[in-house]
Design a protein around this nucleic acid. Structure first.
Lengths: 112, 112
DNA sequence: TGTACATATATGGATATGCGGATATGGTTA
DNA sequence: TAACCATATCCGCATATCCATATATGTACA
């Protein structure tokens, strides 16, 4: 289980923080969606997601070529509360808009 | 105003996290009380508190020889919520007990 | 099977962070 | 004024962290 220190360290990086906030808000996203939303390189996003997965903060699910990420289902409630509080402090409008502009949304297409 | 990334970085260190949680719980503490509660060296505590003060997370108040610290009164609500959530994840029992064992409590003595 | 697409990983370099020990500074008191 | 107590600051060192770039790997499809 992730410790508070580890969790806060994860959130101290802008890339990881915004990724997690987007996941909190959207539920599930794949790498290319985060690349588009954050306008960062694919290897960079991929590495940060790897760290988050290794720490048990997010979990992945391969769907064909795409890998979908979401917050770990067993993330402690205090961690969820922290993310919701941080969401109040961060305006994701611009990032969400970039998601809306995508012509292909693998995470939505995959919704059963 | 402190950004979420700065705030989470501050909380990613065990010394700073425990200091802030104790301040959230106790209201106000001086350096020697934190030294006793955390069982760490005085220069180490002092340096971490300086960082927190410089980032606007805590504020200090000199009372004679002693310097009392408390959470900044203008800390954003989302930051307070984060601290309360983290308090749920951390058992401060042992640290609080060390405070209770102190023969001198400058922060209590100073309470008007 | 080879190509295309999506994602993961490696690496060297640059920067950031935290520490102990020593010492400086401020306030109090005899 | 000097000594004591509480706190702040400095410095060199060790470790941690993040990045761009290049490349490896997995899946899908013609």
């Amino acid at each position: 289980m992730v410790t508070p220190e580890q969790f806060f360290r994860a959130l101290s990086d802008t890339t990881r923080l915004n990724s997690l906030l987007l996941l909190e808000q959207e539920g599930r996203l794949c790498v290319c969606e985060l690349v588009a939303a954050l306008e960062l390189s694919q290897p960079r996003i991929s590495r940060h997601l790897s760290q988050l997965r290794d720490q048990g903060i997010v979990q992945d699910e391969r769907r064909g070529q795409w890998v979908h990420y979401r917050l770990a289902t067993d993330l402690p409630d205090w961690a969820r509360q922290v993310l919701r509080a941080a969401l109040e402090a961060r305006d994701l409008g611009e990032l969400s808009a970039r998601l809306s502009c995508m012509t292909q949304r693998p995470s939505l297409d995959a919704a059963q």
